[in-house]
């Protein structure tokens, strides 16, 4: 885990320093002044020395000061932005999981009926339309033309609905499709036939046997899906004017804001690794076979 982080930090550090330009390059800076600014922020030192200094600060939990927003520390920026992004992401995930699983389950049980087709149509739209188009369209139609929801800003629950739906739609679609396939597969298994033969009620079969087993493969893809939501948050936060963390990791690269690039990368890497760990744990809880294996060890 620490080794992984070290690799990520090192690779990012040297990769970003190989991009042409630096934080202080602008069309209105003279070479002399630029060199002076680089010196002030320690960017004139040999690269390996900067690297050692950075690692030292990192060990103390200090991400340094942003080189674009010269008055703000990267720690502050993450502290301010992450809760917003997390809220947006969790809401999106909540929509995606509940609606996605519901649609998928219905489609699976009502295989080849209009319900199935409707659910899969929604899912395909979610998969096929890029986030920036979906977000823009929703904003224009639902926000401006219909006036149902606020166009942008981040002032309360009403403001979160549209961006969260736009962000979660892709994940929702994947969820629905996987759940449908999974339900179809499980209902064909012998133990379901056994359960039926035992005379269990339909309700019991659905909840105790089908869903419980069908949900297993879904849990495994939660990790990558969460990563997809993190990635998508950039576009959605941009379109809806949300003060989250998403926009930093694109802007920081264009600004050559070295400390912010590293800060966001490390932060997201830790987050993703942590989420993957959570998924493993969740998988263990849901899948009795793994639980058994663990207890035997």
């Amino acid at each position: 885990m620490l080794a992984a982080l070290w690799v990520i930090v090192t690779a990012t550090f040297f990769l970003m320093h190989s991009i042409p330009g630096d934080p202080f390059l602008s069309d209105k800076v003279t070479e002399a002044i630029r060199q002076n600014m680089l010196r002030k922020y320690g960017l004139d030192k040999p690269l390996w020395e900067q690297y050692v200094i950075y690692l030292g600060n990192l060990l103390r939990g200090d991400f340094g000061t942003s080189l674009k927003m010269l008055h703000r520390s990267v720690n502050d920026m993450i502290r301010d932005g992450f809760p917003v992004s997390a809220l947006l992401g969790l809401e999106a995930l909540a929509y995606a999981v509940t609606i996605g699983l519901l649609l998928g389950t219905l489609a699976g049980f009502r295989h080849n009926t209009w319900l199935d087709y409707l659910a899969m149509f929604v899912a395909l739209i979610g998969i096929s339309v890029p986030g920036f188009i979906m977000g823009g369209l929703m904003q224009y139609i639902i926000g401006l033309k219909l006036g149902w929801l606020p166009i942008a800003r981040w002032e309360g629950f009403r403001y979160t609905i549209m961006p969260a739906v736009a962000l979660g739609l892709g994940t929702l679609a994947v969820m629905a499709r996987m759940m449908r396939t999974s339900v179809l597969e499980v209902t064909n298994q012998d133990y379901i036939k056994t359960a039926k033969a035992k005379g269990l009620s339909q309700r019991e079969i659905v909840f105790r046997h089908v869903l419980r087993n069908a949900i297993l493969p879904i849990v495994t893809i939660l990790g990558p899906l969460t990563a997809a939501i993190v990635t998508g948050s950039f576009v959605i936060e941009l379109i809806f004017g949300i003060p989250g963390l998403g926009k930093y990791y694109v802007q920081s690269i264009f600004n050559r804001d070295y400390t912010l690039i590293l800060g966001t990368t490390i932060f997201y890497a830790i987050l993703l690794v942590f989420l993957n760990f959570l998924v493993d744990v969740a998988y263990g809880i849901v899948d009795p076979r793994i639980r058994l294996m663990r207890s035997r060890e």
């Binding site: 904003q139 926000g143 401006l144 166009i151 942008a152 004017g241």
Partner: peptide, 18 residues
């Protein structure tokens, strides 16, 4: 003043009187 970087959003907000 808002700090919205997208180009279309502010125009939508203007049209909506925001």
């Amino acid at each position: 003043a808002d700090m919205i970087k997208d180009i279309a959003t502010p125009l939508n907000m203007y049209d909506a009187g925001e």
